[in-house]
Design a protein around this nucleic acid. Structure first.
Lengths: 232, 232
DNA sequence: CGGCCTATTGATTAGCCTCAACCCACGTGG
DNA sequence: CCACGTGGGTTGAGGCTAATCAATAGGCCG
């Protein structure tokens, strides 16, 4: 994809429709397209925050702790936005999960340009609030849910975000490895594997190759997710 | 405190200084003061999001899972803002930790009023982004840190937020109970207790009564917090 | 001073991690 | 076309961390 196409896609989704061509160009001049190879960190200026638009592929925002431990704080799929904090201040890295094309802004520059544009500000606010809700839900899972519940919640969440409805079930083509899932759920690859095996033996999901998961019983999955609502 | 005083305090901290009296009054008309007793949920309309300004006391935002399990997703101290999602949609409750005085807005109404006020929008954006960073850090702790590291991180974080510097050390008067700390760190009260005992025996902290904690060795505390930066 | 609730301490258990082996799909080169 | 190597995924055995269960201690109220 050309830079032009990527920017158009971003603009049509996130910039208000009534922008003048001149205004669009100003936004465009702040943007930079980045192509990221599978499972490689996205190189960004360490001294400032960034806003990234995922055009295609999938990315993960990774938090680092001592001893090489990693926690994936969020995944991002096409047409989603991420706020990436400055590496210098907070130990986070944005990485691609599979090959991805991104559009990246210096967050502060973008904010300055949008200083008097309430529609863009509201868009950013909305994006930030959605991330916050997701992150809070993740905190609940990491703090209080069992391995079985975390995996069920994860799959149920993926079904909403990237699921392809088939007759009476939902098919997932998971872009991330078991290791990524483990790092996202605060577990190990072995535990993920065992839990998926468990779900398979209960006829709740079936797996197709390494990345394919068909959710045959979404109700059953949600019932195991530990939600307060909908499962008591 | 009177409603007037609470609102003034909110306005001076979060509304831009150049607002007309009429504009201030419009904001004021959306606000409602709530006094919350210790450890009791704040009663809010379940069908909409809210923005709460903590005037005094301390609050916690609690996420609920099945089986009565609770995860505290954030604490809030005087002069801080919280976005509380609609209970109807997401299973969250705002509760006071000790007696608190709050100023509460319907989030949507506030946003509508501020629709064309970039300064207020940026303030909200900023607040949302700070919450997001905190929540991401919490995810790292819950997903990948040991009990010892979580408690150390917690105390180090509290030192920044509510610590009172004394000669060569920091004193904390923790407003929350051990149970709250446990629910915040994804642990049990017993584990919290044991970890604090451990820190005491290492001469890193000393405790004064139930709520007092003096951090004698902040460096030592941070070294045990599992941070990537500053501790390798 | 006595009752109550929170915090602490101790003993045991359970869930997940660790370590190790194996399987399988895929790519490579003989 | 098959032997081989590689890397992710799965499965199994044993260990460790934090949970659970139970009892004691200690602050704070009347």
């Amino acid at each position: 994809m050309t830079f032009r196409e990527i920017f158009e896609r971003f603009a049509s989704r996130y910039l208000p429709g009534n922008q003048s061509d001149a205004a669009l160009l100003r936004y465009q001049s702040l943007a930079r397209a980045i192509e990221a190879k599978p499972d490689s960190p996205v190189r960004l200026d360490e001294n400032c925050d960034h806003l990234a638009f995922v055009c295609c592929g999938a990315t993960k925002l990774v938090a680092h702790a001592s001893g090489g431990r990693e926690q994936i704080v969020a995944f991002h799929f096409p047409d989603e936005l991420v706020v990436v904090p400055a590496r210098a201040e907070h130990a986070y890295t944005l990485s691609s999960v599979k090959g991805s094309e991104l559009l990246v802004f210096d967050y502060q520059e973008l904010l300055d340009l949008a200083r008097n544009d309430p529609l863009v500000l509201r868009m950013l606010l909305d994006c930030s609030r959605k991330s916050l809700i997701r992150c809070r839900n993740k905190s609940l899972a990491l703090g209080r849910k069992t391995a079985a519940e975390r995996v069920a919640s994860f799959l149920a969440g993926m079904a909403v975000r990237i699921g392809m409805p088939e007759d009476d079930c939902v098919f997932l083509d998971l872009p991330m490895s078991r290791r990524d899932i483990a790092d996202s759920l605060g577990l190990t690859v072995e535990t993920i594997s065992r839990q998926i095996t468990q779900l398979r033996s209960l006829d709740i999901v079936s797996t197709v190759g390494k990345s394919g998961v068909r959710i045959d019983d979404l109700r059953g999955l949600e019932a195991r997710a530990g939600y307060l609502i909908a499962s008591g």
